[in-house]
């Protein structure tokens, strides 16, 4: 009976160690946040920039590291230095917009003046910056 308990405990220990090892060294290496699976805060590009310009700390408390779904007019499309597609949406301020780096394999198909994009908010520099973006429509 004692041997049985010891064996069960050993098996449990082994399984736990293997699970932690798999999560830290295997799963985390390949699995990143998936914006498509997360609920998003819906806002227009103009309103997002306005919120950041009005009060950056309070905007960060509301948007930072959250998934945001933005609707806006495209003013620029391009690629960053690593070759990822980027899209910049217009706000009411000509010096500031929303820069979104699209997720690997995602890009705008066709010519659209207004798009809806979903991404993770990283904060505010000249533009409000989103990453891991996907085009919703």
């Amino acid at each position: 009976m004692k041997i049985k308990i010891v064996l069960i405990l050993l098996a449990l220990c082994f399984t736990s160690i293997a699970a932690v090892w798999y999560y830290v060294f295997q799963y985390s290496k390949t699995h990143h946040r998936d914006v498509e699976l997360e609920n998003a805060i819906a806002v227009t590009a103009g309103q997002l920039v306005k919120d950041y310009q009005a009060n950056e700390s309070s905007a960060n408390a509301h948007y930072l590291n959250k998934v945001i779904q933005i609707k806006g007019d495209v003013i620029k499309e391009g690629k960053d230095q690593a070759g990822n597609y980027t899209v910049t949406l217009k706000s009411n301020d000509p010096f500031s917009g929303v820069l979104c780096t699209l997720k690997n394999g995602s890009k705008i198909s066709g010519t659209h003046s207004t798009i809806v994009v979903k991404g993770i908010c990283a904060g505010f520099l000249t533009d409000v910056v989103l990453n891991e973006g996907v085009i919703v429509k």
Binding site: K29, A82, L99, T101, I120, G123, L125, V129, N131
Partner: peptide, 28 residues
């Protein structure tokens, strides 16, 4: 890959700004 930078050719003034959350690691 989302670094914001400006440089003035005559004065050499330069700014590099980066958001910490924009740093991407291989391991989440």
């Amino acid at each position: 890959n989302q670094v914001d930078s400006k440089m003035v050719d005559k004065t050499g003034q330069v700014i590099f700004s980066a958001l910490i959350k924009s740093f991407k690691f291989e391991n989440q």
